[in-house]
Simulated scan of single mutants.
Amino acid sequence: MIDFRYHVVSIVAVFLALTVGLVIGSSYLSKVAYDELNNQLSSLRGQNQTLHSTQNELNAQVRDRDSLIAALGPDAVAGKLTGHSVAVVMLPGADGSAGDAMADLLGKAGAEVTGEVSLKSALLDPGQAGKLSAAAAKLPAAERGGAQLPSPSSSASSAPPSPVIALADIAGAVVHRIPATPAGVGEQTITDQASQDVLTAYSNAGFLDVKSASASSADLVVVLAPPAPSSGSAANDAADTLYLGFLKDLTGGGRSLGAVLAGPASSAASPGLLAAALKDNWVSKNVSTADTADQPSGRIITVFALAEAAGGKTGHYGLTGTADGPLPDLH
């Protein structure tokens, strides 16, 4: 006769068997899962090491390529700018060492480098507006070539903001000339002493650095742009507007001087300055651009673009898929 105790014992035995089975089974499955995860981890480590090795090889190739291009650079540009004088201007945030390397290559291309001028970010600081206006006010007409400055290109206002006036002053001093005005006043030459006085005044006020400056004027100018900011902003757009107006002031409205705006690869994409230049109707037609100018290849491209600008032509060159290819054909 099967009593209640028998059923209880049977049920307990069944659950005990299930528990033992689950423990044994889970232990086995855990080991299988662990082994699988360990194998995947080992595989990923191997892939990571392979990728690191590949990256190191590619980095070495890039270094060797840049070293080769840098070594061949002087021969590639030799004589391209003989008889020309070039001013080098670095906008706020541009790499100073890239400016020095550019000036060195320009000299090897046969150009006379008339000066290296670095603009400082204080020029665009609203908190420095009073100081900037005071520096501009200290420059009489006599130190601007004997005539009043024209209305700056970057503003149609009868009372343009201080950075606009300052950039127009600096542009005239860098190239020793004031562009013709829309009112019909012709281009005016600024004396060598007046040029020095303007640059000294703004330098003493903390708005620019002058590494070198000669008494001769320039017939070509290269302006070095900073890297692009991580994202666009109203402040960045306002700075771009000022810089593009500065380019127009430097070139005499496109009539008297060839110019190249050069910058790192990032500046060729929005919100970079080179990208903004290509979107500007006037600048894109009158000022050449060259990207990757922080690298030896980009500096060679810049020299070729300057040589083309000396002949009255403009183009947009570089290694980021530019409209006119890597560099102009000067043959």
Results as ranks from 00 to 15, higher is better:
204 N>V: 01
53 S>G: 13
219 D>R: 00
65 R>F: 15
222 V>S: 06
277 A>S: 11
161 P>Y: 10
197 D>R: 12
265 A>Y: 06
19 T>Q: 11
290 A>W: 00
37 L>E: 12
189 T>I: 14
263 G>E: 10
259 A>I: 08
106 L>E: 02
43 S>R: 12
77 V>D: 01
71 A>D: 13
231 S>M: 10
142 A>Y: 04
175 V>R: 03
329 D>H: 05
121 S>E: 15
59 N>W: 06
254 G>K: 07
189 T>P: 00
17 A>E: 04
56 N>C: 00
68 L>V: 04
183 A>V: 09
114 T>C: 07
218 A>W: 06
246 F>H: 04
282 W>T: 06
306 L>N: 03
225 A>W: 01
238 A>L: 09
295 Q>S: 14
78 A>K: 14
115 G>I: 03
141 A>F: 06
290 A>C: 05
29 L>F: 12
121 S>I: 08
191 T>W: 02
225 A>T: 11
314 T>F: 03
327 L>N: 00
186 G>I: 02
31 K>L: 07
8 V>R: 13
30 S>A: 13
303 V>F: 02
222 V>N: 04
8 V>C: 06
3 D>H: 11
222 V>P: 03
151 S>P: 12
249 D>K: 02
137 A>D: 14
328 P>F: 00
32 V>K: 09
243 Y>K: 04
48 N>M: 10
192 D>T: 10
122 A>V: 04
240 D>C: 01
46 G>D: 06
314 T>Y: 02
135 A>P: 06
180 A>S: 15
308 E>T: 01
91 L>N: 04
106 L>N: 05
251 T>D: 05
183 A>G: 08
299 R>N: 12
218 A>Q: 02
55 Q>L: 15
278 L>I: 00
94 A>N: 10
119 L>F: 12
48 N>H: 05
298 G>D: 09
154 S>N: 13
239 A>N: 10
78 A>R: 14
118 S>F: 14
89 V>Y: 07
58 L>V: 15
150 P>M: 07
18 L>S: 10
117 V>A: 06
1 M>N: 11
274 L>I: 13
172 G>I: 01
327 L>E: 01
124 L>M: 14
304 F>C: 03
141 A>S: 11
302 T>Q: 06
126 P>K: 07
171 A>S: 09
181 T>M: 02
91 L>D: 00
144 R>G: 01
59 N>R: 13
312 G>H: 09
212 S>P: 00
93 G>L: 10
167 L>Q: 05
138 K>F: 01
23 V>G: 13
211 K>D: 15
193 Q>N: 09
18 L>H: 04
4 F>Q: 09
295 Q>I: 02
196 Q>L: 09
178 I>T: 08
192 D>N: 14
223 V>L: 14
276 A>M: 07
158 S>F: 12
137 A>M: 05
248 K>N: 11
51 L>S: 03
